[in-house]
Design a protein around this nucleic acid. Structure first.
Length: 668
DNA sequence: GACGGAGGTCTTTTT
DNA sequence: GACCTCCGTC
């Protein structure tokens, strides 16, 4: 291990002995590096890797950390398992879920599965309210679960709060009946297990003699409690965080955990990293100027000796399309002039929907690109359908998946039949599959429909036998053929290309499964399903090529860095987003988000905004973001995107862009 | 009773 | 532009 390239403070953190350690590390100060070195140091000091528990928040961050540790160790010792909080929960629950009344082959429900359950629950509970927003109910429930409490009905003035509290027990019961856990349960149930089962906690404490948590400002209460239980009073616990980069308050993160940490472990050693090794001074000055507008902030003095660099560019554009082509134009010339590669350039935006414009522009320019996040591969309908088949085979009680595939492709089991089966299931308190087995005796189900139902079940039984460890991909290929999925897809779509693309996606699942099997030959279907449900971020088939321009949300960009960064859509209502400004502290979080985005840039940073933008098929006039007015004038160069090519009044476009430019200048 | 087509409604960020 | 719901037809 070569620690010579660490600065004194980083070294101190890496070689800190036992006991709690808090590393307060600003953006770009080498916190991942420090953490990686610390893990490697533990391993090379002889700590068995399976006694180290390293946790990151996203799979991407976990991969990154794992890669760094491996390269520091250079084959001397193997890196410890590095998981996300959620995948750690799965590992624990896979062993002991039975103690909580779940079976070990439980299914993980994602947001849309949750939505199905909630709609069902609302229907059964006769909460019919036409425009009942199930998402809102789930949102309230999720926030409560993240805080580790039951949903609070409030004083009755908030209808949704009340309803969420009323429906929550039914929702939880449904999940239990389906042998399914939602994302929040993966944490909450793990915590419950640790609290209730001394033996389980003891066993995991042995495997967590050293705990390291990245992005600690993003932990919620449940995660904090998990860590606290595992680490114990005098734990060997290292956490890294930066409260200026707390951007997950909306999903229950409690950035106060950083300060609570010092309260809970008074003997904590605190090390602050403030030298930035990523960005030019100009970029840092601009980012600091923005974040300084946040009240109640712990002042920080982030500095860099990487030189002035070029000014931050603020680029005024007429409309969303012009913004995209202007950005792409600049990327093209960066690649041409400076010989940087596409992969050195990133376009960041506030919402996933913004990516399409940039994708179009990049395609037109003939540049390769990758979209990180966005529509997840496993979110595509055709992929979900296939995964639902697999899930039913693995966990017959997974009712959401069962209902999804029961009549897909169509096999004569219509809505009425399904309703009758469900009613019988509800009345008898028996799982839907069990009721289906005796479909013929269910009231109101005709012989023909009953035959379709039992025929379907027989088919499922038969297919279940095909799935053995080592033959998962092959069995899935057979399933696709036997069920006629590809034919159904081609039939359902008018556009032939779209149909073929869907077929490709289905085959991609088979390939992904084959790849997964090669990596873990002993894995069963449940292992694959869990991995698919937790990881499904980017398209795994897509290798992050060095010449692909990176498109991603600012959230997804956290922890990453790019030589040339473009931040798009700095407009009021979009960034800061109107929906987040409603919540208390929402604007501050948006500002931290802007800060995170700006501090991704190494050499150049370009921020763009438009005068109008298409938002759900309507042209909306846009005001420049207030964050633009917070930029220090001497670090910034204002420019205006050249009038777009194509039809349109060039003079008019120039005039409009000029007006916006004048307006933003006047605000400074 | 099953199924396909048409219309209305929303889109913040993620495990 | 994607999804859910409703409605008319087979």
């Amino acid at each position: 291990m070569d620690a010579s390239r660490l600065n004194p403070r980083q070294k101190e953190a890496v070689f800190h002995g036992d006991g709690p350690l808090l590393i307060v590390a600003g953006a770009g100060t080498g916190k991942t590096r420090t953490l990686a070195f610390r893990i490697a140091r533990l391993v090379s000091d002889g700590v068995p890797p399976d006694q180290i528990l390293a946790v990151a928040f996203t799979n991407k961050a976990a991969d990154e950390l794992r890669g760094r540790v491996r390269s520091i160790l250079r084959g001397k010792g193997s890196p410890p398992p590095i998981s996300t909080f959620h995948s750690f929960g799965v590992r624990v629950l896979r062993q002991d879920a039975e103690r909580l009344g779940f079976k070990r082959n439980f299914t993980i429900y994602d947001t849309s599965d949750q939505l199905s359950v909630m709609r069902e629950v609302a229907r059964e509970s006769h909460v019919v309210g036409r425009d009942l927003d199930a998402k809102k109910l789930l949102w309230i429930i999720s926030r409560a679960k993240n805080d580790g409490v039951a949903p609070d009905p409030g004083d009755g003035s908030d209808e949704y709060r009340l309803l969420a509290a009323q429906l929550y027990p039914r929702y939880a019961a449904a999940l239990r009946a389906y042998n399914a856990l939602d994302f929040d349960d993966l944490l909450l149930m793990t915590l419950r297990l640790f609290r209730d089962e001394e033996r389980v906690l003891r066993a995991w404490k042995k495997r967590a003699r050293h705990i390291l948590v990245d992005e600690f400002q993003d932990t919620n209460h449940v995660q904090y409690d998990l860590v606290r239980l595992l680490a114990g009073r005098s734990g060997n616990l290292t956490v890294v965080g930066d409260d200026d980069q707390s951007i997950y308050g909306w999903r229950g993160a409690a950035p106060g955990n950083i300060h609570g940490f010092v309260r809970d472990w008074p003997q904590t050693k605190v090390i602050t990293l403030d030298q930035n090794y990523r960005s030019t001074c100009t970029i840092l000055t601009a980012a600091n100027a923005v974040i300084e507008n946040n009240p109640h902030r712990r002042p920080k003095n982030l500095w860099s000796d990487l030189g002035e660099g070029v000014p931050v560019t603020v680029l005024a554009c007429r409309a969303g399309e012009d913004e995209a082509s202007a950005v792409v134009e600049r990327i093209v010339s960066l690649i041409a002039e400076k010989r940087c590669r596409g992969g050195d350039c990133a376009v960041m935006f506030r919402t996933n929907a913004q990516s399409r414009l940039f994708e179009d522009a990049l395609r037109r320019a003939g540049l390769r690109y990758v979209v990180i996040g966005g529509m997840r591969f496993y979110d595509r309908k055709e992929v979900r359908d296939l995964v639902a088949y697999l899930s039913c085979l693995h966990n017959p009680r997974d009712e959401v998946s069962l209902l999804r595939i029961l009549n897909y492709p169509p096999r004569g089991i219509g809505r009425e039949t399904v309703h009758r089966l469900q009613a019988a299931s509800l009345a008898g308190g028996r799982p839907l599959v069990e009721v289906m087995k005796g479909a013929a005796s269910v009231e109101g189900v005709a012989e023909r429909q009953a035959g379709a139902v039992t025929g379907f079940l027989a088919r499922v039984e038969e297919m279940r036998r095909w799935f053995r460890p080592g033959s998962l991909a092959e069995a899935t290929r057979r399933l696709v053929g036997a069920v006629g999925l590809e034919e159904a897809l081609l039939r359902s779509v008018k556009d032939r290309d779209a149909g073929h693309r869907k077929v490709e996606n289905v085959r991609e699942v088979v390939s992904a499964l084959a790849a997964f099997e090669r990596g873990e030959p002993r894995a069963d279907l449940g292992d694959y399903l869990a991995a698919a449900n937790l990881s499904g971020r980017e398209d795994e088939s897509e290798e992050p090529a060095a010449d692909s321009v990176v498109l991603l949300t600012v959230h997804a960009a956290k922890g990453l860095e790019f030589r040339h960064a473009f931040l798009a859509g700095f407009e009021e209502g979009l960034f800061p987003h109107e929906r987040s400004c409603l919540a208390p502290g929402g604007l501050e979080e948006e500002r931290r988000l802007a800060y995170v985005g700006m501090t991704r840039a190494m050499e150049s940073l370009t921020i763009t905004y438009t005068g109008e933008r298409t938002r759900w098929a309507r042209e909306v006039v846009c005001e420049p973001s207030r964050f633009l007015a917070e930029l220090p004038e001497d670090a910034v160069r204002f420019e205006q995107a050249s009038a777009a090519e194509g039809p349109g009044d060039a003079e008019d476009e120039a005039r409009i862009a000029g007006e916006y430019l004048a307006r933003i200048r006047s605000r400074l």
